[in-house]
Amino acid sequence: MRIVCPFCGERELGEFTYLGDAKPQRPAADAGEDAVYDYVYLRDNIAGVMSEHWYHGGGCRAWLKVTRNTLTHEISAVEPAAGAGAAKVGA
């Protein structure tokens, strides 16, 4: 599999580390135990198109949001995480 890193260009799978479902959002500090429990343990496992976190540890160390079809491994989009790179959100 090959992933087009927005910073480094197209690179092979071995440079990346997979984390998983990119949809869950870390709950606010006061969200309560149930919300955090869901965030920590509930993951979608979609047979089809899914948004996933990948880490370009063998390259620029950017966290990426990769849209991948888990059936065909076709990657339709790669975006940097909100805080990837030097620019700051809102800065």
């Binding site: 984390l19 880490y55 160390r61 966290w63 995480a81 909100a82 700051k88 959100v89």
Partner: peptide, 11 residues
């Protein structure tokens, strides 16, 4: 890096 880029990008 995950904490910085994904969880707390505002920092």
């Amino acid at each position: 890096e995950f904490c910085r880029q994904v969880l707390f990008p505002e920092l």
